[in-house]
Every structure is written in structure tokens, then in C-alpha cells.
Amino acid sequence: MSHNSRRHFIKNLAAGTLAGAFAGTAQAQTLLTPREMEGPYYPITPQKDQDADLTRVAGKSGVAQGTHIEIAGQVFDHEGNTVEDVTLDLWQANAFGKYHHPHDTSDAPVDEHFQAWAIIQSGKQGRFRFKTVFPGAYPLNAASQRTPHIHLKASKLGYDSLLTQLYFPDHPLNQKDGLFMRKSAQEQALMTVRRTERENHYLYNLILQKIPL
């Protein structure tokens, strides 16, 4: 992709207009959401409540601590077509940077009112939406932390499964995060949610590779 085409794509992407990004250049059709490692804390404890509102847990009256946010978006294939019925499996740390996972032995508190894990599907025109808390940074060691992020797996028959992480714009830890900084500026843009005019509301679009028949 040429320098001008890349600037056009990222400009449209930052504005949340993925259709415009695809229209900017035919070569943009080859761009896919970058892959990322799963990390050590994929949920292993069964839970019945896996709906799109992670700020509440079924059967409990309280709400999750921290800043509540909403993330909405669409799933596209590499040709710009929307994709319905994609399974989105997502998990993250709570507002204190603690995963609801037995292997997370940090001193940060567990929030029993935070759902921590959801499995949802993209609907009409590939749209999805979920409510959660802004994830806290979690410690890698005494000297460093991982920047706030959300893990996501996307899968549907006929498409390459995707494992990725969502990042947040302009967070000061982004520039210190090894995984984030290994990505190019274009890849970082594809993995970073975008603010909207609504407070604590973000947009995020996924681009999957369709498997040729």
C-alpha cells in the first residue's frame, strides 16, 4: 500500500468509517485485524452469565467497580462485507488490573460484581455491542505493567479464527507496552478502539479473512 493510501485508510479508520477506509484503495482489502497472543489468563472457571453486560453478574445486586464503558462495532471480511453470527469471546482484567483467574496471584482485589468474561455474537450487518469497565493495568513484574487491553477471539465457520487484543487511545502505558510497540502504526490503529462524542463510548471494528471455497 502506498504512503498516501495508508494515510487515507488510517484517517478513515480513526473516524470510525471503515467503509470509507475500504473504498480508499483496492489494496486496503488485504488489511486484516492483527493477531496477538492469548495471554495467561483465558478463563478456566465455568460461569453461566456470559452476556454482553460485564458490569453486572446474574444473581448479584451490586455493580462492577471502576469506570463503565461501552464498546460497539461491526465485523467485516477482508473485502468489506459485513459478517453476521460471528462468535466473539472476550475477557479482561477488572478495574484494579486483576483477572478473575486462579493463576493471577497479584495483590489486586477481585471484583465479585464484575463478569470478567463474555461470549456474544455479531448481529444484523455484523454489529455487536458490549458494556464493561475500563480495564486496569496489570503488573508484569516489579518494574512494569501491561497497558489496559481487552482480549478477544472471533470465530465463524468459513473464516479464519482471530485472536487479538483491543487497546485504548492515548493511554500513557501504550508507549511502554512491549506487545503494543511491536506493531506498526497501521497495526496499532487497527487494534485501538476509537472515542465517540458520547462519554465513555468507543467504536471498534474487526476485519476477518474469509476462507476461499
Rank of each mutant, 00 (worst) to 15 (best):
L13Y: 05
D160G: 13
P34M: 13
T147I: 08
Q145N: 12
H78G: 15
P109S: 07
G158S: 12
T67S: 15
F134M: 15
S2L: 08
I69H: 04
P172A: 04
K48E: 07
P135L: 12
L206C: 03
A52R: 07
L90T: 02
R129T: 04
I69G: 02
Q47P: 02
L152M: 14
F22L: 06
I119S: 06
R146A: 11
H3M: 03
A52I: 04
N12T: 05
Q92W: 01
T164M: 07
R194I: 11
A143S: 08
L166R: 04
E112M: 13
D49M: 10
H151L: 09
S5Y: 02
H151S: 13
A95D: 08
F114L: 01
A185D: 13
T30C: 11
N4W: 00
L213W: 00
Q209C: 11
A116Q: 05
S155C: 03
S144W: 04
V83R: 06
K156V: 08
R182C: 05
F9E: 02
A23M: 09
H151K: 13
P139L: 13
P172S: 06
T132P: 05
P43D: 13
L54E: 04
V57T: 08
N4V: 09
A72R: 06
P46M: 00
A137P: 10
G73D: 01
T55A: 14
A189S: 12
Y167Q: 11
K153N: 14
M181Q: 15
H103C: 08
T132N: 08
P102K: 06
I69Q: 03
N81L: 06
T25L: 01
K153E: 12
G62D: 10
T67I: 14
L90N: 00
Y159E: 01
N141S: 11
Q74C: 11
T45C: 04
W91H: 11
E38Q: 14
S184F: 00
S184C: 08
R129W: 00
K156W: 15
T30H: 02
